[in-house]
Every structure is written in structure tokens, then in C-alpha cells.
């Protein structure tokens, strides 16, 4: 499993870096708030917190929550 995941990551890294660089003047659409990944970290943390407490999985999303947590 480890091997598969690392190779998948390697393949993805290769794919990502094979892309042509996007110039600053071409990033107008990417600056739109709906295109920003984790645009509101506070809200993402709150949402992650209630899911962590009701499901058996955690991590892999980039958001972070803390505390014991019922909410």
C-alpha cells in the first residue's frame, strides 16, 4: 500500500511539474475567492472539528481543529 501511495504521489508530482508555468497576468480567475483553497481557515477548522468527533477519520484536508470537542 505504502509503495502504491508513494508512486501515486510521485506520478502526481511529475504531472504537476510538467505543466507550463502560469504567468501572474493569467491568474485573474484564480484570484476569485471561490477559487482559493481553504479561503476561510477559521470556518474550515470549525467544520473539521464536528466531523472529527462524529467520524473515525482525521487529517488530509489541510484544515486544523483543536480541543476535545462536542461541537
Amino acid at each position: 500500500m505504502k509503495r502504491r501511495i508513494l508512486f501515486a504521489m510521485a506520478a502526481l508530482a511529475a504531472l504537476l511539474n510538467s505543466c507550463a508555468a502560469v504567468q501572474p497576468w493569467q491568474r485573474g480567475e484564480l484570484a476569485d475567492p471561490i477559487m482559493i483553497i481553504n479561503e476561510n481557515p477559521v470556518d474550515a477548522g470549525i467544520r473539521e472539528h464536528y466531523l472529527d468527533y462524529r467520524e473515525g477519520s482525521v487529517g488530509g484536508t489541510g484544515a486544523q481543529s483543536g480541543g476535545c470537542g462536542c461541537g
Partner: peptide, 24 residues
């Protein structure tokens, strides 16, 4: 203890991706 690694990549003027790995 948590260690996380992330790569965010602009793929095109309309596409952006983020890969995250966490080890807890």
C-alpha cells in the same frame, strides 16, 4: 503528534490543486 505535508500547484489559469498528506 501530527506531521503534514502539502503541495499546492497552479495547473492552468483556471485550475489549481492541493495534495495533503498527514501522519498522526
Amino acid at each position: 503528534y501530527t506531521i503534514s505535508l502539502g503541495v499546492t500547484q497552479i495547473l492552468s489559469p483556471r485550475l489549481i490543486s492541493q495534495l495533503n498528506y498527514s501522519h498522526n
